[in-house]
Design a binder for these strands. Structure first.
Length: 400
RNA sequence: GGAGGGGUGGCAGAGCGGUCGAAUGCGGCGGUCUCGAAAACCGUUUCGGGCCGUUAGGUCCGACGAGGGUUCAAAUCCCUCCCCCUCCGCCA
């Protein structure tokens, strides 16, 4: 959630970044709801104050207190209604976009192209991942439905090598490895901002009241929920391996071929808790790690500074790293790195102690690798495997 | 699946109708001592919100898992829900 106090104190400063993400109206409604609530607070406080007695009252006082109590009951109902209205809007208002986030992209990207790195492979007749690796899509569909597949044989070894390699690189960069739960409570989904905005994307286990995470960001942000951290514990950096589940409800008909966009995929994630003044540096750091991974494999890629309208509720800024996919003849998303500033930490109650007060930390998340990286490796090198992945157990060439 | 126990401040843990925003210990912060540090000693230290104030701060209200109820008065009594733990069974 946003900082309501700051928004109230200086709405003109806060509003633009929210409006750019399409939350202007919700923001205005929030301020109005907040004002209604603030009108009621002193009235209720005053009545409550009159109700306070230190000792046994006289009969006359008791009579008077009865009327106070009636008035109070009515006013308190109004107050709690006003508060509920305010809180509901507070859930809806997105984290403002940072100044450096562009408004509208020209061309085929969802933002401003920061740079392109690497040479595009010159291939006469590039094979697509389905021909190069072994993905059992029809059998996957028979088992689980569309957008499910098996990764088999050498291709599975390639994928496993990618996870292990990325995890090692993340650890070398100071991130602690984690294997997190993937089923979480509703609370964690709200806390990370996936609810209410992206509820339609999330699988629910109805009988248990649990939800399957679409990213380990949820579990990693939830790792310290409700905690007050010591200032010198920060930054806290984690990298997690997990399987992720997404309904892809908004993607009907899009990327239906192969393993490119499926309901279940594996990912090595990066996550950081940092001091507020350090989060923009950390954001660049996450991007730098992602780029170094793409470079180490020799994948051609570009970096996109995602435009405001495409940002999630929680993200103040996001970079995507998009790799070239020869079979599609275009760049496609491989990773993203977001600075969610204090949006998640406010909801999850993650603070740090600074002298005599507490402050919300900033949180950031980024992708190290996903299964989609295996597709990018297959297509760009047409079945040959980069040497570094062989060190992590991948075969030199994907054959079976 | 069955049976119990419990949710109180940063942590541990008392309190079980008004004197309790809450003992005590640990931790934190400030100080004394010291060349410096440790120890010891002294002091201080819950959080949120409204209003006032340039600041320092002041003032009122709320919060003892959440929500209802009883009562003039609830951390304390009653109800509902949520969560955690232990034991047994089952499965790995």
């Amino acid at each position: 959630m946003i900082d309501l106090k700051a928004a109230r104190a200086d709405p003109d400063r806060v509003r633009p970044g929210i409006a750019r993400k399409g939350g202007g109206e919700a923001f205005d409604e929030l301020l109005a709801a907040d004002e209604r609530w603030r009108e009621l607070v002193p009235q209720v406080d005053e009545l409550r104050g009159r109700q306070k007695l230190k000792a046994k009252p006289t009969p006359e006082q008791v009579e008077e207190l009865r009327t106070v109590k009636e008035d109070l009951r009515r006013l308190e109902q109004e107050l709690s209604a006003a508060e509920a209205a305010r809180d509901e809007l507070l859930e809806k208002v997105p984290n403002p976009a940072h100044e450096s986030v562009p408004d509208e992209a020209s061309g085929d990207s969802e933002g401003e192209i920061a740079r392109e790195v690497g040479e595009l492979p010159q291939l006469d007749d590039p094979k697509e991942h389905l021909e190069l690796g072994r993905f059992e899509m029809e059998r996957g569909a028979r088992l689980s439905g569309s957008r499910f597949g098996y990764i088999v044989g050498d291709t599975a070894r390639l994928a496993l090598a990618l996870y292990r390699w990325a995890l090692d690189r993340a650890v070398a960069a100071g991130f602690s490895p984690v294997i997190p739960p993937v089923l979480v409570r509703e609370e964690a989904m709200y806390g990370t901002g996936f609810f209410p905005a992206e509820r339609f994307e999330i699988y629910e286990v109805v009988d248990e009241g649990l939800y399957l995470t679409g990213t380990s960001e949820v579990a990693l942000a939830g790792l310290h929920m409700g905690e007050i951290l010591d200032r010198d514990q920060l930054p806290l950096r984690y990298t997690a391996f997990s399987t992720n589940f997404r309904r892809e409800a908004g993607a009907a008909g899009r990327d239906t071929r192969g393993m490119f966009r499926v309901h279940q995929f594996n990912k090595v994630e990066l996550f950081a808790y940092v001091l507020p003044e350090e989060s923009w540096d950390e954001h660049e750091r996450l991007l730098a790690i992602e780029e170094s991974l793409a470079q180490e494999l020799g994948l051609p890629y570009r970096v996109v500074n995602i435009e405001a309208s495409e940002l999630s509720a929680a993200a103040a800024k996001r970079y995507d790293l998009e790799a070239w996919f020869p079979s599609q003849q275009r760049y496609r998303e491989l990773t993203s790195a977001s600075n969610t500033t204090d949006y998640q930490s406010r909801r999850l109650g993650i603070r740090y102690r600074a002298n005599n007060h507490t402050e919300f930390v900033h949180t950031l998340n980024g992708t190290a690798v996903t299964d989609r990286w295996a597709l990018a490796v297959l297509e760009n090198f047409q079945g040959e495997v980069p040497a570094v992945l062989q060190e992590f157990g991948a075969p030199p060439r994907i054959e079976s």
